[in-house]
Structure formats: C-alpha cells, structure tokens
Design a protein around this nucleic acid. Structure first.
Length: 790
RNA sequence: GGGCGCGUAGCUCAGUUGGUUAGAGCGCGCGGUUCACAUCCGCGAGGUCACAGGUUCGAGUCCUGUCGCGCCCACCA
C-alpha cells in the first residue's frame, strides 16, 4: 500500500473534522486487492480461523450482523497483526423455510402459489431471487469492513456443501443413526411441514381445562346420563377426564389411569363409551398418569399428543388421526369433518354441554406450541419422517464440554449446552418443502427398495434396474449448517484448506442459536471429522433498540447498519457495538451512542492532525518497526506517556486474549482521550514553543505513541486507523498487516511523578474555578503539599 | 415445573481473579473564541452499588434468603 507520509505538508492533507465516507472510501478495496484477507504462509505461527455465521440470503443485514462483524473482525485483525495465518470464511445460508417463504410471498403478490408453478419452476424463481440478494450481503459486509477472505465465499446450496450433506446423510444412514419412521412430530398446518422441537416456540396462553364425563360401559350413568354424578369416583359409572384440547377427543382410543389409583382400580380393563361418537375405548393402567392432577384419569389420543403416543404404544391402542395436514378435521371427526380446529373445539364443547357430559370448565394457563416461522399453532401429528438418532452423537459432544476441550465464553453457557445435550430427543430432519437440500434417498417403484446415495441423481434401481423416485422432502436447513465448519473448507474433498484450517479456532455467534447451530456443529464435527470443529464458543447477545425492545420488521424499529455507517462511519458503529456491552448479554443501541463513538474517532483524527505539524517540522527517526522509541535524557512528560503506552499495550493484549473486547476498547478510548490528548498533548503545546531539542523530543514521542496507538486500535476501528497510520511516519505497507506491538518496560517513577503533577494541576484548576478566577488571568499559587506517600 | 441472566449517578452501561476516596458516555449546572478537535476544553453537582443476613482484617465483587424485571428449557392431560 502506498505511503503518503511526507514531510511538512501532510498536516494540510487532513481535514479539520473526520469525514467517514471520505476516509473509508477505497480503503477496503485496497486491502482486498493487496490480498491481505488471505492467510499468510508462515509456519512458525499457529493458524487462526473463524468460520463466519452465514447470514440468510433472504434479506438485508441488520445491526446484529454488524455486531458479529465487529467482534469477529477484532479477533481476525488482531491475530493477523500477530503474524498468524489468519482466515475468516464468509458465506451465506439458504435459510430453508424462511427462504421459501420469502419467494412464496412474492408469488402471492402475483396471485400465484408454488403449486401453480410446480417444483422445478418454483426453484428457478427461488434461485433467481437468491442470486439477486447474495451480492447485497457481500456489499454490506465490505462497508462494515469485514476482513474476510472473499475468494473462499461459500453458499450452503453450492455443489460442495451439497455434496457434504449427501455424504453425511448416507454415512449416518449406513451407521443406523438416520432412520425413517412414523412418529409423532410437530406439524405446522400453515407451512405444511414437519418441524423439529427447536422450531416450535412455546407461548403461555390463557386456555381452559374442560372436564368431560366418559360413561363406563355397563355403569348406571351410561343410562342416566345426567353428568352431575361426582366425577372421578367411577362409582357412579363415569370417568371424568380433563383436557385443554377437547376436539382431540374425537381421536381418543383409550382412557388411562394410574395403576395404583384406588378410585379406578376396579375399572381397569373395562370400557368407556366416547361421547358424541359413541366409540368404545378401553381403560388402561399407565404409570405416566398423575393421579393427583385433575380427576386422575386421562383421555388418550395417541395420534395427537406426545404423551398419549407413548401410552398408546405401550398398550397397543389405535392411532387414529382426526386432522388433515392443513389443520382441518378429517372424516374421522364425524360431524366436525372439514371444520378448523377452533371451530371443532367450539362445536365439541357445545355438543358436550347439550348432552350433559361437560362436568366443568376451569381457566387454565398453559404453554402452546407455535411455529417459529409463522406463529401458527403447531399440531402434534402422526407422520412418517426422517430422524437423526441423537444419543450416540450427543455422548461425545457432552464429553468434549465436560472435559474442557470445548469452552464457552461466557462460561455459563456450558451448563445450558450440557442441559440440552443431556436431554436431547431425536431430531426430525425432513421438511415438506421444496427449497433446500433434497433428501438423498430414492425409492424403487418396482422392487420397493430404499436407496440412499451420495450421488446427486440416481437413474435406476441398482437392484432391479427399475424406476426410482427421489424422496420429495428436503432437509432441515440446520442440517447443512451443522456441517459448515468443514463443508466450507472443501470436505468431503481432502483439500489443503481442510488440512490447514480444520478445526477452526473460535465460533462467534449469538446465544439464540446455541442449540440450533453450535450444538449441531459440535456433534457433526466430532462424528464426521473425529475432532471438534472449534475449541472456543464465544456468544454475543442481542442488539436491541434504544428502548430495549427487540428489533423486528413488523415493529419497524430495525436499524440498518448501512445507513448508520453512511452517517457516522463503520468505525463508529463497530466501536459503539463492541464497547457497549459484555459477552452473552443483550445490549441497547442508540444513535447517541454511535455519535459519541464517532466523536472518539474524530478525537483520534485531530490528535494526529496536531501531531503532524511538529513531526513534519522536526523530522522523525523511523526504524524497521516504525518511529523509534524516544531515548536519552527525556522529559518527564515523554517518559510518562511512553510508559502509559506500554501499560495500555499490555492491558489490551491481555484483554483481547481473554475475549474481553469491549473492555479493551474502553481502555483504549480512555487512554487516548484522557491521557494522550488531555494531558500529554496539552502539555506538549507549551513545550513546542521551547527549544529545538524540546520540539524534537515531543515530535518523536508523538510519532511513536500515535503510531503504536493506531496499531492497538486498528482491530476496533480499522478504517480511520489505517488512514491515519498512512499519514504518520511508519514502516511497512499497511497497518492491517503491521505487527502487533510488544509492551516495553514501564517507567514507574515517571508515572508516579506525573500523577502528582496531575493532582497538583487539578487542585489548582479547582481552586481557580471555585474562586471565579477568569481563565486568562495569571495568578500566583501557593502549594501546601504534604509528604508524598510511598 | 426446572435453569440462567439482570437490578451500580437522571438515562445507557463498565467494573477479569474480593483490597486504598466506586467509573465512563450522554444528560444537568457554572465557566471557556490562543493556531488538533465546539464532533471541543476546564470545574462541579449527582450513587445506603435492589433489599436482608452471613463469610472476611476488608465485599459492588464470595455465600444464603427476599423482592422486581427479563430470558431459556420443559410431552402434567
């Protein structure tokens, strides 16, 4: 990179105020073109690798992305300056349901559904859309200054990651860890697809607990039907069950009681008559029934409730599905067929009421599952889907965290991770969508064989040469995400990148995708590569608006990082985001905050502007490592600021090493503003009017301290520091690849003496202010100082 | 039902392993046009570090409990 450091005239090159768009323009391209974003070839240093969480191709970047760019770029730039072969891999995610939904909405505007187009044409539309948005992500990342290696950009739907998906699927299938089966899964009637447990969000809602009397066959109530008999005793010939979803009774195939429950013991093995439909249901005894809850008896709907599903299996009950995939009732629902769940619920309740079988209704506050994507109430449904058996995969992932090979920042997330891993359920990975990685499974129409293959297509059945058809479903988008740490590096091919850069170093992402993504990368990495995909998980919080509300498109409080950057600069936005909070905690972002960060950039700008004049006028000694460290018989001020620089250098280095990025940024800011500017430069003004010797010493010190300060600040505010470094005396081509400074030995005596001086000045200022002495007036001060404490 | 986080100056937040008068930014009051910066400078007001116990020579920092706010996990119908 071209140096513009010239004698004398450079001060005029800097505008009086920092103008971000002027400064940032072109800088990024020059870094990129010079190849600084690619890892170096040094073999004496450990590589440092970060795999970027791939943003969804579906939309614009938001400030959350700006936060991860800021944090990851600090890590990356710091390690690059330390000389490590440093790689930051960018990418984009196809975003499964979300991706498909965006395009379906576009189609809806044209009055079309995806079915009008058909699978093939629809996917063409999706690809066209994704191609148009992918460039935008890249552009925004560049504006933010992300120093990632664009030559290695990967999209989850690229051939490489797609091949990785098929290979892993087959591998796990062959090992028996992927299976197809009819299970009770969560179904979104709007998205018309199965969901994993994680994609179901539970929301507490005020509902009801309906108590319904089921007459015991042969009991007196079956004849009396007054429903007023004291429920639950069974003595009167009824069993009262309680439910929050009365419409599901249409699918009841049994009633369960606890085997030890004296009230019902004599009824076990008998039958009840299902109200409305009149079907006969067996009464079974099951340990899972809580005798203390409600009436102690529970209706069993094996096809529409996870718990009932298990009971049904244990007792061989019928699995009767009463709902269609779109959430309406099917023919099994008798008179309610065709109605929505809500309509059927009302209908069933009023019918029960008429018939006198509704014993009582209670208010009941309980959690109801909703689709993460569209917020529709999710229905438990019996369905044939593909699953990953999690037990064998989770075990090593648990061990890795327990024995400390995998660490978390902040540490408490280790417990959250373990708790989830240790209670994990099998993972439903098939989705009834079109956009995504097609399940690599083929079924032979002739011999009925199931063929799982790594190949993209299969022409004929390898067994009977019959016609084959591919499974119509696609995989959960997080399946490919879980392979990201190695699929981005070329796996399944034995690439150089894979050898050099797997495993990566740190996974930096938001805590909200700890289970969705981080956990899955861990177990996939261990299973497929035999090695953890990263040793450290750094989790950041959510960026909220100035009022603390979560940002969302519907609320209209989303901040566009590109806009902020345009007004205040990427450096200011990044610095604000990094210094505002702490790892793992949510933070609020206000424009006021960004503005004060911008002011700090401006401060740095002007300090440099000030320094350039004496530097240009006196001439500076510049060595191989930049301006030479001031030497010889130095004034106290020079010794002091150099010592403080040594202090901050050590401090920042150690904070960065401990992932305390915010604290490092804040310390740097305080050093520059309070020590360098308010004290050293202010004092320098007087000395610059002194002898040539003094001017020279000040200039050398300023050059030395500022140049080093730019290096320390570069990971935090890459643009302004690079621009200023270029006009300061320096060695080397670009700050982005300048060596990270070492901390020299501190001069404790100078620091102590200067501290006394600062205190003295502060006391005098205070006395003047309190006595209302006009600022311009010189007055004598008598100082009464005590003995200095040791 | 479990688990976690937060509660520090009017506001937003720092405060890594317990150690001298608890910090910053913004806001507020007073005062500043000398050639780095008014995107600035100086001075100042403002805090029982949620509350109650405990450990300690010493606690914002550790332990226990209480209250308030938020989040995550969860198949009690």
């Amino acid at each position: 990179m071209e140096s513009t450091a010239k004698d004398g005239a450079v001060a005029e090159a800097l505008a009086p105020a920092f103008d971000p768009s002027e400064v940032e323009r072109g800088l990024y391209d020059r870094w990129d073109e010079a190849g600084y974003f690619a890892p170096n070839d040094r073999e004496d240093r450990p590589s440092f690798v970060v795999i970027m969480p791939p943003p969804n191709v579906t939309g614009e970047l938001h400030v959350g992305h700006a936060l991860f760019v800021a944090v990851q770029d600090i890590m990356i730039r710091w390690h690059r300056m330390m000389g490590d072969p440093t790689l930051w891999v960018p990418g984009a995610d196809h975003a499964g349901i979300a991706g498909q939904w965006v395009v379906e909405k576009l189609l809806a505007a044209e009055g079309l559904t995806r079915h009008d187009l058909g699978r093939e044409k629809f996917l063409e539309r999706v690809w066209a859309y994704m191609d148009s948005t992918r460039g935008r992500i890249r552009e925004q990342m560049r504006i933010l200054g992300a120093s990632c290696d664009w030559s290695r950009f990967v999209f989850t739907m690229d051939p490489g990651p797609s091949a990785a998906v098929r290979k892993v699927f087959k591998r796990l299938y062959d090992k028996g860890l992927i299976y197809r089966g009819e299970r009770l899964i969560s179904w979104c009637p709007r998205c018309m697809t199965a969901l994993s447990d994680l994609e179901v969000v539970h929301q507490d809602v005020q509902g009801h607990l309906w108590h319904i009397a089921y007459p015991v066959v042969g009991g007196e109530t079956e004849r009396r039907k007054d429903g007023k008999t004291e429920g639950g005793t069974g003595g009167a010939g009824v069993i009262v069950v309680a439910t929050t979803r009365p419409e599901t009774m249409l699918g009841d195939t049994g009633v369960a009681v606890h085997p030890g429950d004296e009230r019902y013991k004599h009824l076990i093995g008998k039958q009840v008559r299902l109200p409305i439909l009149g079907r006969l249901l067996p009464i079974v005894a099951d340990e899972s029934v809580d005798a203390a809850f409600g009436s102690g008896a529970v209706k069993v709907t094996p096809a529409h409730d996870p718990n009932d599903f298990e009971i049904g299996k244990r007792h061989g009950l019928r699995f009767l599905t009463v709902m269609n995939l779109d959430g309406t009732m099917n023919a099994e629902a008798g008179p309610f067929a065709g109605q929505t769940v809500e309509q059927a619920r009302k209908g069933v309740v009023s019918r029960l009421e008429q018939d006198g079988e509704l014993v009582k209704v209670e208010q009941h506050f309980h959690a109801v599952g909703h689709c993460q994507r569209c917020n529709t109430v999710v229905q438990p449904m019996l369905s044939t889907q593909w699953f990953v058996e999690m037990g064998p995969l989770a075990a090593p992932a648990i061990a890795a965290a327990k024995d400390g090979r995998l660490t978390f920042v902040p540490e408490r997330f280790k417990g959250v991770y373990l708790n989830w891993m240790e209670n994990i359920h099998d993972w439903c990975i098939s989705r009834q969508l079109w956009w995504g990685h097609r399940i690599p499974v083929w079924y032979c129409r002739d011999c009925g064989e199931t063929i799982v293959t790594e190949e993209e297509t299969l022409l004929a059945c390898p067994g009977c040469a019959g016609k084959v058809e591919q499974d119509p479903d696609v995989l959960d988008t997080w399946f490919s995400s879980g392979l990201w740490p190695f699929s981005t590096l070329g796996w399944p091919n034995e690439t150089d990148d894979l050898r050099r850069f797997y495993p990566s170093s740190v996974m930096e992402t938001g805590y909200e995708i700890l289970f969705f993504w981080v956990a899955r990368m861990v177990f996939f990495g261990l299973e497929v590569m035999g090695e953890l995909p990263f040793h450290t998980v750094y989790l950041h919080g959510t960026v909220r608006d100035a009022e603390g509300a979560k940002m969302s498109k519907t609320k209209g409080n989303v901040l566009d990082p590109t806009e902020i950057t345009h007004e205040y600069g990427a450096d200011a936005l990044r610095f604000a985001l990094v210094t505002q909070g702490s790892p793992g905690l949510d933070m609020r972002l206000s424009m006021q905050l960004v503005e004060s960060s911008r002011n700090f950039v401006n401060k740095l700008w002007n300090a440099t502007r000030f320094a350039l004049r004496p530097i240009g006028e006196t001439g500076i000694v510049v060595g191989a490592d930049g301006p030479a460290r001031p030497e010889g018989d130095l004034a106290l001020a020079d010794r002091w600021i150099v010592s403080r620089l040594d202090w901050i250098t050590g401090e920042v280095t150690s904070l960065l090493g401990n992932h305390l990025y915010g604290e490092a940024g804040r310390q740097l800011r305080d050093f520059v503003w309070s020590e360098l500017c308010d004290w050293y430069i202010e004092a320098a003004k007087v000395r610059l009017r002194g002898t040539d010797e003094e001017r020279k010493a000040v200039a050398q010190t300023l050059a030395y301290v500022l140049e080093r300060t730019m290096r320390l600040l570069h990971p935090f505010m890459p643009f302004a520091t690079e621009a200023l470094w270029q006009v300061l005396p320096h060695a080397g081509d670009a700050l982005i690849v300048a060596p990270w400074p070492d901390a020299g030995e501190r001069d404790q005596a100078a620091e102590d003496d200067w501290a006394v001086l600062m205190e003295l000045v502060a006391k005098v200022r205070n006395a003047r202010a309190e006595a209302n002495v006009e600022p311009g007036r010189w007055i004598a001060a008598d100082v009464f100082a005590g003995r200095r404490r040791a």
